[in-house]
Amino acid sequence: MSSEEKQLTLNLKVWRQKDGKDKGQMVDYTLEGVSTDSSFLEMMDQLNEKLVVENQDPVAFDHDCREGICGMCSLMINGQAHGPESETTTCQLHMRKFNDGDTVVIEPWRARAFPVVKDLMVDRSAFDEIIMAGGYVNVNTGNAQDANEILVPKEDADLAMDAAACIGCAACVASCKNASAMLFVSAKISQLALLPQGKLESDKRAQAMVEKMDELGFGNCTNEAECEASCPKGIDISNIARMNREYFKSAVVSKS
């Protein structure tokens, strides 16, 4: 407990939906005694403890590592994906960013490709399908190779690492006014397109992944960069330009 810790009373507006078929609605809760030292998800836990004591159904929300690296947490907080802080996941957002008496609106990600499972949980398996379509490399099993056998220029390694920082949380889709998944798909294409290991399948990869993305019903990019601004890992839209190049190349040269 820090010396500057305060207790907040918050007016929460939370999306409640029994299951995928239910229409759902916003429900108001007042939560007292929220420590400014607690994280946003701890505040949600506190709400759920209160609901359980009151014999009500707790609010379902996704979470796992709570360290900002797993990509499981989501939540649209006051109209922004992962809340108001830049490059921060919901689990790393702290209640000191809020004031006593604030109204906090909490909603699930909204996209046709991400149906609501319950309350604030959405089914993000559309992302897995895109990865399965081409976001991988084929490698022979056996002994590990020598570390420096395949040389990679430092600049390429850095860019590939920047793209690989994507945790697949889908804040890009949630914040995009078109529910486009292009930042996610482009990051996954880029991390492989920039490295020699990814070259083997490069004539098919972009095509397969982009077409799967289209098939799943994500929207189109209008280059507004809200995805980049909302990405907790700071993935930038130069990856989308790379994906556009890769797709064009892949569509022209692919033999299949």
Partner: peptide, 20 residues
């Protein structure tokens, strides 16, 4: 297509101020 991609809209949506 973009409108179809989000059939249920947000109750509250705010631009980040760093993108659009």
């Amino acid at each position: 297509e973009n409108k179809k991609a989000r059939p249920v809209g947000y109750y509250m949506k705010q631009p980040t101020g760093r993108g659009s």
